[in-house]
Every structure is written in C-alpha cells, then in structure tokens.
C-alpha cells in the first residue's frame, strides 16, 4: 500500500512545479528515455522534467527514507522516543563544517558537501569517544555528550554567521534545508549510501527488537550490544552525513516518521524499518512539493515545511496516545 502511495507521490512530484507542463508531455518525455517517442515537447520542458524535477524527487525519496530509518535506529538504540538522527550532533557538526568553509569563502558545491559530511562523521565519533566507560559506551553519556557537542557547534555556527558578511544568506539557506540543488550527480552519490545504510539497519532488525527490552537483557539474549552500537552509529553518521551534505538540515522527518509508522506496524523492526523508509520518502516528497509551490516561482526551504507540518501533527500524536507513546 505504502509503495503504491510512494509511486503516486513520485509521479505527482514530477508533474507539479512552478512551470506548467501538460501531463501528456511529461509522459512522452519520460517514455522517450526508454523508447524513442514522437517529439511533442521543447528542450526546456525536457530539461525541467529530466534535470530538475526527477533528480529532485529522487533526492527527496532517498533523503526522506534515510532520515526516517536513521531515526528508527536511534530511537531503538537509545530506547528514547526523543532520539532522532541528529541526536549525536551530526546536524550541528555538519552545519559547522559547512559554515566553516562558507565563511572561508569556499562557497561552491565542491567544498560544502564534503565539509558537511566530514563534520557529521567527526561529531558522531567524538560523541561516541566521549561516552566510553572502559570498553563500553554508556547510552546516557552518548545522549549528554551529543547535546553538549550540539550546543558547542551551534554556538560556533552562530559566531561564523555573525562574521560571515555577504556569505550569510548562503549559510542561512543551507541551514534551513532544501532540495533545490539536487542533480543526478548528487543522487548517484546519495543512492548507494542510503541504500546500504537502510539494508544494514534492516539486517539488525532482530537485535533492535531485543534492545527494546534493555541493553542487559539484549546482551543475555545473544546481542553483541557494543558491536551493534558501533555499527549503527557508523551507519547513521554516513546516512545523515550524506543527507545533510546535499540538502542541509531537514528537521523532524527522522523524529516523527518512526512514531507515526509505529502506531500502524507496532514495535517490530522487521516491519517498522521498511515502512518508515517508505513513509519518510512520501513525507519529504510532499513537503518538497509544498516548498516549491507555496510561493509560485520561488523556493522555500523544505525544513520550514517539515517542521510546520510535523510539529503540530507530532503534538497531536503525543496527546492522543499519551498513555502509550513508545
């Protein structure tokens, strides 16, 4: 069912945009990619469909799925309903990396994504290192160091914004998150990372189920807890790193999607992970459709839409299921 909705969302994502292109033309342009079709469209229309809307919709699909699955993994690992993919400081780490190169004047797309990616990965590993007690990492220390590091990086970002001068708007838009820069090259990099990340997390679905009963009992039931933590943290930092690198900081998807999906699938990760991936994709595709249509001809950061739609819905969800939220 969700897969059908996702397919429909992709179709609508390609059909809708500030420039009106009749559906039969879009269909012809897409058919032409597979079998040569009678040319009824202009070059500009083909470019809009193939080079702008398609990569953008696929990017939304991938990033939505990646953030949602990363959120599922983090909530299970921390046994905490407030955990999200950014809980280990990946977003502020990435933000700092991007802010640093932007404020140095290295504003092009060659520098910003790698810097953001490096920032996300470094932040996650720093937090992990800080949480070690002997050979094991403590979950509450992970959370606390994550919060502390996020605060530190946020302050550094604010400082860089304060001194950024004319590069300020670049930084501001990047931090609000958006899919406007999507192109096939980015899809090609993002696709394998998020696909592998999702598969890795899904492979540990059984272990994540056992983690819900607590770290100790999971250990007794044969889960190599420390190993699992390392693998999930590395996987999540890569998934979030690539998402943030190309699309900036898109909030709320990784937090609300797992909660919404859990109300339908229950807590079993074998169903929760794939369903969250699909629902995350659908949500971000729609948020992006709203972001690029809300003000015709203009671009709104998609992070505004996800938070604007996500926060009230989440509040309703928490309220309506206040007895049994996690």
């Amino acid at each position: 069912m969700l897969a059908g909705v996702l397919f429909a969302s992709v179709v609508i994502g390609v059909a809708v945009g500030p420039v009106w292109i009749p559906p039969q033309k879009i269909a012809a342009i897409l058919t032409n990619l597979v079998v040569p079709t009678n040319r009824t469209w202009s070059d500009a229309e083909a470019i809009i469909v193939y080079q702008i809307r398609l990569p953008r919709t696929f990017m939304a699909l991938l990033v939505g799925a990646g953030l949602a699955v990363a959120g599922v993994a983090m909530q299970a690992l921390f046994k905490n309903p407030l955990a999200d993919p950014y809980v280990l400081g990946a977003s502020s780490g990435a933000g700092f990396g991007a802010a640093l190169v932007i404020s140095l004047g290295l504003v092009s797309a060659i520098f910003v994504p790698p810097a953001a990616f490096a920032g996300a990965v470094i932040a996650t590993f720093t937090v992990y290192a800080l949480s070690m007690i002997g050979p094991r990492s403590s979950v509450s220390l992970l959370l606390l160091s994550g919060i502390a590091l996020s605060t530190l990086f946020s302050a550094l970002i604010s400082y860089l914004m304060f001194v950024a001068g004319e590069n300020l708007h670049q930084l501001v838009f990047w931090l609000m998150g958006g899919l406007w820069a999507s192109r096939w090259e980015y899809v090609e990099i993002t696709f394998p990372i998020i696909l592998i990340g999702t598969i890795v997390i899904y492979a540990y679905a059984r272990d994540l189920n056992l983690m819900l009963s607590g770290e100790e009992s999971a250990q007794h039931l044969g889960v190599a807890v420390e190993n699992l933590k390392k693998i999930l943290l590395v996987t999540v930092s890569f998934v979030v790193g690539v998402a943030v690198a190309f699309c900036g900081i898109i909030g709320f998807v990784g937090l609300i999607v797992p909660h919404v999906v859990r109300t339908f699938t229950g807590p079993d990760h074998k169903a929760l992970i794939p369903a969250s991936a699909l629902f995350g994709s659908i949500l971000l595709i729609w948020a992006d459709i709203v972001a690029r249509s809300a003000i015709p001809g203009s671009e709104m950061p998609v992070g505004i839409i996800t938070a604007l739609l996500g926060a009230p819905f989440f509040m309703y969800l928490v309220w309506s299921r206040r007895k049994n939220i996690f």
């Binding site: 945009g17 420039v19 838009f173 406007w180 203009s298």
Partner: peptide, 11 residues
Amino acid sequence: YGTMSKESVVA
C-alpha cells in the same frame, strides 16, 4: 530580494 526556482529560470 528573493529566491527563484530553477524551473522558472529555464522557462
């Protein structure tokens, strides 16, 4: 001063 969609630029 504002943002403009790439589609509009192409069109």
